[in-house]
Design a protein around this nucleic acid. Structure first.
Length: 458
RNA sequence: GCGCGGUUAGCUCAGCUGGAUAGAGCGUUGGCCUCCGGAGCCAAAGGCCACAGGUUCGAAUCCUGUACCGCGCGCCA
């Protein structure tokens, strides 16, 4: 299975709307790896096209070297955004940008070098965030990777009769209504009248390359639902090409909004940086760790705070059904109590605490006499089922829900079923200890799939 | 106009391959540490599941329609 997720654009900072694809995609990725799939995670970054012409114009025209030295990506983003403002007043800039884009695509060494630098700066920052989030890709083939084969690909589409040339010179793929509801009225443009390719073209080239390279059973895309039509077209185009052996899946998720309903997007201007949210989450967690866990060393406190903070942010996103829009709220996404990642981590840490203290006690066969422990055993035993359900329906939130129920039951068990206290008969103790261990394993395996790092103490 | 989503408690959301009195968190109110970790536990209040039909022994869940909200629909990605 090839899975395509995260896919940020170069020269822009990742903001929390990017978190959705990254975190949901990452969870779907690890769910399938856990179930034995061979998964190739491919980060299809936006590193090509007209934005770079604009960026080069802005770079040459009005860059701030001092700002660039201290915050490279911030300066690139500022330049890109300022281009829009200036171009609105001075339309000639758009022509300049087109010219710079053309030069870049033709291989002009100066523009190529600049582009290379922009990409490297962006990737460096993305990698830092991926490291914090525990995300790893097998390959990073951005759009530029396919740039050289697009002309040939469109020519071949025309040759095979898949696409047709219009009078203007533009090339489109026209669909029959039988290829999908509504597709008959929505042709897919693969070449502009000026000869340039578009993102549908790149996506077709990407499909072709993935099939040639890995012959996957399945190719999965994780993007927001606004791209639904686009991918339906790409998939229908791919089937025309004869790539129907491969199953295509578009996992969509809803839009991130502010509480007042405003959209969060680079376009709208109102964004919250992902790094800023992760930092805030870590800081809030650190405050709590310092108050609650004074027995941990300063270094351990820092590590736990980072794990707890990142997990809280991830879980906020993962625990909601991908298909619905979500509202970003600082307090809720950074919450450390209630239905949150720290709650799962806490339940796990309490199990670990018992197991540490019980080092020399033997684990026995299960004797489930109390209703609370019976329920706990039942829930723990259903974890594999929850993992399968979550994978099959592309909904990591199902696993979140299961783990939360398991953690809740763990807390009840902890209150009501003593394990190591005096007076607990040996056979009951041995049974409960085995149950605690099974629970700890279920929780930690499940959390790891969700990218939540279980800790021994917190 | 066509297409795709959505509408469940004060707020944020689960539950959607149909199944028992519709769940959780937050918030509100009231309890629980001589006891393995209180980032916790117990309890209460709070819902004609947008509306109207249909299918079914049974519908928040499936079908049809309506209303409202959001998104998308060739030369950006």
């Amino acid at each position: 299975m090839v899975i395509d997720y995260s896919s940020p654009n170069v020269a822009k900072r990742m903001h929390i709307a990017h978190l959705r694809s990254t975190v949901i995609g990452g969870a779907i990725d690890s769910l399938h790896r856990y179930l034995g799939w061979r998964v190739i995670a491919d980060n299809h970054i936006g590193d090509w096209g007209t934005p770079f012409g604009k960026l080069i114009v802005a770079w040459n025209g009005w860059r701030d070297d001092a700002h660039f030295a201290e915050d490279p990506l911030g300066e690139l983003q500022r330049l890109y955004e300022s281009f829009k403002g200036k171009a609105a007043e001075e339309p000639a800039l758009e022509d300049l940008a087109r010219a710079e884009t053309a030069k870049l695509q033709a291989g002009d060494p100066v523009n190529r070098a600049l582009w290379q630098r922009f990409v490297e700066i962006s990737l460096a920052e993305f990698d830092q965030l991926y490291a914090r989030l525990g995300i790893r890709f097998d390959v990073v083939h951005g759009e530029s990777f396919y740039a050289d084969e697009l002309t040939e690909l469109v020519d071949e589409l025309i040759e095979k009769g898949i696409a047709e040339v219009e009078e203007t010179g533009a090339v489109v793929v026209r669909f029959d209504p039988s290829e999908g509801k509504g597709l008959g009225k929505s042709p897919m443009l693969v070449r502009k009248k000026d000869g340039a390719a578009l993102y549908a073209t790149t996506d077709l080239a990407t499909v072709r390359n993935r099939i040639r390279t890995w012959s996957p059973q399945q190719i999965v895309y994780v993007t927001d639902l606004r791209q639904k039509l686009h991918f339906r077209q790409v998939f229908a185009g791919a089937r025309r090409w004869g790539w129907g052996e491969t199953a295509f899946e578009h996992v969509t998720f809803g839009i991130l909004r502010f509480p007042d309903g405003a959209l969060m997007s680079s376009r709208g201007g109102r964004v919250i940086r992902l790094a800023e949210v992760l930092d805030a989450a870590r800081d809030r967690a650190l405050e709590l760790v310092r108050a609650k866990s004074q027995d941990l060393s300063d270094q351990e406190q820092q590590a736990v705070a980072e794990a707890v903070g990142v997990a809280a942010v991830r879980y906020f996103d993962l625990s909601q059904n991908p298909s619905s829009d979500i509202t970003f709220d600082w307090d809720r996404s950074l919450a450390l109590d209630g239905n949150t990642a720290p709650y799962l981590m806490y339940a796990h840490a309490r199990c670990r605490s018992i197991l540490r203290k019980a080092r020399n006690t033997t684990l026995g066969p299960l004797r489930l006499e109390d209703d609370v422990e019976r329920q706990l055993a039942l829930l723990a035993s259903r974890t594999p089922e929850a993992i399968q359900m979550a994978a099959a329906s592309w909904r990591p939130n199902l696993l979140c829900e299961h783990l939360y129920a398991l953690a809740q039951q763990t807390a009840r068990f902890y209150e009501q079923c003593p394990v190591l206290r005096e007076g607990v008969p040996d056979d009951v103790r041995a049974s409960r200890l085995a149950l605690v261990r099974a629970t700890a394993v279920s929780l930690s395996e499940g959390m790891k799939i969700l990218g939540i790092q279980p800790v021994e103490r917190m």
